[in-house]
């Protein structure tokens, strides 16, 4: 059942590093994170990696496996052949801190720039009424575990560091869409989506959707509808107002 696998793991820090070779035991049913833990316990106790839940729920263990953004804890070893060399590197879009750990503070800054939920001032706790069909769209986006794999893969920032200040990235554009579709949110989020969060820079390549471990349809269900509404508003602000009022009354 068990065999020895060949691993290449990136070791280093902000000043640079290299891919180091390891040979390490693999047992039935294991995921890549198990192997990283075995390396820590048996060969290299100071190998830095982030993880928490080991069940795909917290979004801590993001890295790139053979060049693809993945969760280490949800990538089963059985998806590789026994001969294959497995290369594990840190997320490329964010600055390396040490080994597989990157500085993801970019994402927390972007989160702060999205205006918070703005409920109607007159509604008291306990008085909120919403229909399941109306909350479902935003609920899909709230499945997000903030693994930032979509942020890592999106070419707008992956290949262009200088776009970072002007572009919130798929995760936070989706947050704008989520609030925009919240049945009780009162803010008009369209001007900011274009002007502050860089919605226009997304050219709907759908790479973000492809890597999302929660299988959220980021592009189809959040970004494209948001783009459509932003265009709508551009021509007719009354449409937006009408939408909001209808939804609240429903």
């Amino acid at each position: 059942m068990s065999y020895d696998a060949k691993f290449k793991v990136w070791r280093g820090d902000a000043d640079g590093g290299t891919l180091e070779d390891y040979t390490v035991e693999v047992n039935e049913g294991e995921v890549v994170l198990d192997i990283i833990h075995r390396l820590q316990a048996t060969q290299t106790p100071d190998l830095a990696v982030r993880w928490n839940c080991k069940a795909g729920k917290c979004g801590s263990c993001s890295a790139e496996i053979n060049g693809k953004p993945r969760l280490l804890c949800m990538t089963r070893m059985s998806t590789f052949t026994e001969e294959q060399t497995i290369t594990v590197t840190p997320l490329r879009t964010f600055p390396v801190m040490r080994d597989l750990v990157t500085d993801v503070s970019f994402n927390y800054q972007k989160a702060r720039e999205v205006q918070a939920f703005s409920p109607p001032a007159d509604l008291q706790p306990g008085e909120y009424r919403m229909q399941q069909v109306d909350v479902e769209r935003s609920q899909e986006f709230r499945k997000c575990i903030e693994c930032f794999l979509c942020q890592d893969v999106c070419h707008v920032v992956r290949d262009h560091e200088d776009n970072k200040p002007a572009f919130a990235g798929p995760r936070f554009l989706m947050r704008v869409a989520e609030l925009d579709m919240h049945p009780l949110d009162t803010a008009d989020r369209r001007p900011a989506a274009r002007e502050e969060h860089g919605l226009g820079m997304c050219n709907i390549t759908k790479c973000c959707t492809e890597v999302c471990p929660e299988h959220i349809k980021i592009t189809d269900n959040a970004l494209i509808p948001l783009k459509e509404r932003v265009v709508d508003r551009h021509y007719d602000p009354v449409v937006w107002l009408g939408n909001k009022i209808r939804r609240r009354g429903a």
């Binding site: 409920p119 706790p125 306990g126 399941q132 909350v135 919240h182």
Partner: peptide, 24 residues
Amino acid sequence: APMRVWELETYGALFDRTPDGKIS
């Protein structure tokens, strides 16, 4: 507990709903 849960809705939480629009 009920007030603490209702408060979460004012922060933006979206719980599953009952047919009459309350928290399921």
